[in-house]
């Protein structure tokens, strides 16, 4: 059994895949989306150099200003420059988005694999996953943040935990239908070790759904951070995050829609890029979609 998936994951083949990815229309999409992500990450990283104002400096005489040459995106209710806050906000929001995605996908993959493959562990693990998942995500996050205090770390964990069972369930669903596939059965009968079986046959079949789910987790993590801020239990409101800026802008929506519009625009751009990247990769890695296309 050597499908394109398997070769895609071995080292020399990976290089050839990468080079094949860079050609044609796919190459353009990947180039653009990666460029967008890098640009936003770079802007956030370079915030101290680029921001015209201190994102924390209050100026009570310049509250709620509309966009102008002085304040590109206007000012918030404390007279802080929104452009500077959006630049700085990218740092925390991206860290939370990336961090939650890695944590959730990593943990969920392991749990889903174990659960999908070892029927003995399945019952117990899935019951715990059911339990975790049954609890309303936001409430769980609120309680965790209240318990441990509002820091980037706790918010990250609070956002990640409810995402894990979702990832695990999807991985398990895929494994359940793959493990009875003829090529897996064949490998098992021929005495392939479990670790190898997983690495070669089961994990690759989860790549596609995980790329899709991962992009969703990324989006949802950044938005959940906003909801936590909205409920008053997010990262300290002084620290700019896209979520914080938007939740504050929410109160002034009819007065200064820009307070939501600008961070929402950049946020949407980032998520759009991440998802398109995920989709392209998914199409590429999926053996059937390639072999099947005449």
């Amino acid at each position: 059994m050597s499908g394109p998936v398997e070769t895609a994951l071995s080292r020399p083949a990976l290089l050839s895949v990468l080079s094949s990815l860079m050609t044609g229309r796919k190459g353009v999409v990947i180039g653009v989306t990666v460029a967008v992500l890098f640009a936003v990450a770079a802007l956030s990283a370079l915030a101290p150099l680029l921001a015209p104002y201190d994102p924390l400096a209050l100026n009570m005489t310049a509250r709620l200003r509309p966009s102008s040459a002085e304040h590109l995106m206007g000012t918030d209710a404390y007279g802080r420059d929104i452009f500077s806050r959006v630049l700085y906000g990218g740092r925390i929001s991206l860290v939370i988005g990336v961090g939650a995605t890695l944590l959730a996908v990593g943990t969920g993959l392991v749990i889903g694999l174990v659960s999908g493959f070892f029927r003995a562990a399945d019952a117990v693990i899935m019951r715990i996953m059911d339990g975790l998942m049954a609890m309303p995500a936001v409430l769980l996050a609120v309680a965790i943040v209240a318990l441990a205090g509002a820091s980037v770390g706790t918010v990250l964990v609070a956002i990640t935990i409810p995402e894990i069972p979702r990832v695990a369930r999807i991985v398990r669903a895929v494994i359940l239908s793959t493990r009875s596939a003829p090529f897996v059965e064949a490998a098992r009968i021929s005495g392939t070790r479990i670790g190898k079986l997983m690495w070669r046959h089961l994990i690759p079949s989860t790549v596609a759904p995980l790329l899709v789910q991962g992009s969703y987790v990324f989006a949802s993590a950044i938005l959940t951070e906003a909801v936590l801020s909205f409920l008053g239990v997010g990262i300290s409101p002084d620290i700019p995050t896209w979520g914080n800026i938007m939740s504050e802008g929410r109160m002034f929506f009819s007065l200064r829609p820009g307070m939501i519009f600008w961070p929402a625009l950049i946020l949407s751009l980032v998520i759009l890029a991440a998802n398109m990247l995920g989709d392209v990769l998914r199409d590429h890695f999926d053996p059937r979609s390639k072999t099947g296309r005449a």
Binding site: A77, Y78, A150, L231, G232, V233, G234, S236, P237, M251
Partner: peptide, 10 residues
Amino acid sequence: QTTDVPVLKT
């Protein structure tokens, strides 16, 4: 720092 009550959070 109260974060969830408008009249106390500023």
